[in-house]
Simulated assay, not measured.
Amino acid sequence: MISHLGILFMRAIAPLPLPWLRALGYVLGLVLYALVWSRRKVVDVNLRLCFPHWSDAQRRKVARDTFVHVAQSFVDRAWLWHADPEVVRRRVVLTGAVRELAGNDATIVFAPHFVGLDAGVTGLTQQLPRRFIGIYTRQSNPVVDAWVLKGRHRFGINPRPMSRNEGVREIISALRDGDIMYLLPDMNFGPEESIFVPFYGVPAATVPSLSRFARLGRAKVVPVITRMRRGGYEVRVHEAWAGFPSGDAEADTALMNRRLQDYIDEMPSQYYWVHKRFKTRPPGEPTVY
C-alpha cells in the first residue's frame, strides 16, 4: 500500500516546476543527513579513506551535499519517468562526443554511479536512435521493482533489461548485434569474481566486467558522465578510450578506477558515497564500517 501511494505521489508532483522539486529534495536531503546516522557514517568513512588530506569541515560539507544531491535525484525521478517527454528533452541535455554513440559499432557506455545516472540513461534512450541494454539488480519490493524498470525503460527502441542472473552469452550477442550496453561496474558486488585494485589508493573489490565485456564483445568503451545542474542535467559523452581493453583485465580495471577518480574530482558531492564501496576487504584486513 505504501509503495503504491509513493508512486502516486511521484506522478502527482511530476508537473511541478523544477525549482520546487529541487527545493523538496534539498529539505529531504538535510532531514536524511540529520536522521540516518548509519548511512552518514558510511559517507564519512568513504570520504576519510579517499580524501585523507581534506579537513573535517570539508568532509562534512561534501557529506551533507551528497545527501542533498541523492535526495534531489530521487525526487527528479518524478519528472524523468512521468512528465511530458518534451519537458524531459528540454531538461536533459546531451553534450560532448555524442558521435561516439552513432552508427552500429559494438559499444559499452561506462556510466559510474553519479546521482544523475537515471537522467543519463533517460536522455540517451530518448534522444539516440539505438537500442540500449543494461544489467539491473531486482528491488526487493515487486511494486517498486516494476516502477523502476518501467521508468528506466520509458524511452528507447525495444529496451532490453537483463538481470544479473542472465548469462554472458546473451549480453555478448546483443553487443555484437549493435546494441549499446549501459554498464555501471563501480560498486562493491562482493568477493565473487571481484579483484582488488586501487580506488583512491585503497584496495577496492571491483568486478572486471568492463574489460571482460569489451573484450568478448569486441566493443569500444565510451564514458558517459551525468552532472546535475540547476536547470536539469548535462549528459556528457566522452571520447572512447584508446587501447581499451588491453588484454590484461586487472590493469584495465585499475585504469577504470583511476579515470573514475578524475571524474569524481570534478564533482565529488555528486558521487554515490552512500554505498559501502569498501565493504569487501582483502584477506586479513579489518572492516572499515
Results as ranks from 00 to 15, higher is better:
254 A>E: 05
226 T>C: 11
109 V>E: 00
280 T>E: 05
189 F>L: 10
16 L>A: 13
288 V>I: 11
175 L>H: 12
272 Y>D: 01
103 G>N: 03
249 A>H: 05
73 S>A: 15
106 A>E: 02
255 L>K: 04
53 H>M: 01
144 V>G: 14
258 R>W: 02
271 Y>N: 04
121 V>Q: 08
23 A>C: 04
109 V>Y: 00
18 L>T: 05
77 R>P: 08
271 Y>M: 06
153 H>P: 07
191 P>F: 03
165 N>E: 14
286 P>K: 01
216 L>W: 09
286 P>S: 02
106 A>R: 01
255 L>I: 00
14 A>S: 09
66 T>E: 07
175 L>W: 14
72 Q>P: 12
208 P>N: 01
251 A>K: 01
148 V>L: 14
284 G>C: 08
36 V>G: 05
59 R>P: 10
13 I>K: 00
194 S>K: 01
32 L>G: 11
68 V>L: 08
17 P>K: 00
131 R>K: 15
135 I>L: 15
201 G>K: 01
90 R>K: 12
3 S>F: 04
90 R>Y: 06
209 S>M: 10
87 V>Y: 05
124 L>S: 11
47 L>Y: 13
74 F>L: 13
138 R>W: 14
287 T>Q: 12
164 R>P: 11
153 H>N: 15
101 L>I: 07
271 Y>T: 07
253 T>G: 01
186 D>P: 07
220 K>G: 10
89 R>M: 06
